[in-house]
């Protein structure tokens, strides 16, 4: 497995899900998304059905990547927090560890201060899990790995089937 691959197992996924579920309630937010920096959604909580989550994930990652570029231009490592204020809903975007992005959508039922406070605590917990996932990935990328990819027996036929041949 390439060390860049992100492999998430049931247990870790559940822990992430618990943390963002709690964050959504504690921060009185409408929706919370956890996205990875490459634009893929990892987990979500709240009124998720009302939002096109896949597009949100990719646009958020694009936004963060562009802001990262801006930060480097002026000599900063990164901007760890982005805030977009709308008429009704607001978007709070923060970086978690090396590869996570936490997106909190909230309205006047909450406040920026409350969201910031709760996000801080949740970020620490999320970061620990990300670090664990990464440590495991590094350990298992070496020779004699215990981890067996489910794709080790993939065939040409499997791929043809994906394209409806």
């Amino acid at each position: 497995m390439s060390k860049l691959d992100l492999v998430m197992f049931e247990e870790e996924f559940k822990q992430l899900q618990d943390i963002i579920g709690r964050l959504q309630k504690d921060a009185s937010a409408k929706v919370v998304f956890l996205v990875d920096k490459n634009g893929q959604q990892i987990a979500s909580a709240g009124e998720v059905q009302s939002i096109d989550a896949t597009s949100l994930a990719s646009l958020t990652a694009g936004n963060v990547a562009a802001t990262d570029g801006l930060a480097k231009l002026i000599g900063e490592k990164e901007f760890s927090l982005l805030f977009h204020e709308g008429e009704k809903d607001n978007l709070h975007i923060s970086i978690v560890g090396k590869r996570g992005i936490l997106v909190v959508i909230f309205d006047q039922g909450s406040s920026l201060a409350l969201v910031r406070l709760r996000v801080k605590k949740a970020s620490r917990e999320l970061q620990e899990i990300f670090e664990r996932v990464e440590t495991r990935a590094n350990e298992e990328s070496g020779p004699g790995t215990k981890f067996e990819s489910p794709f080790s027996e993939i065939t040409d036929d499997d791929i043809d089937k994906l394209f409806g041949d």
């Binding site: 998430m8 049931e10 996924f13 559940k14 490459n38």
Partner: peptide, 8 residues
Amino acid sequence: MTFINYAS
């Protein structure tokens, strides 16, 4: 970077 989610 492929993202493999075993949970879902």
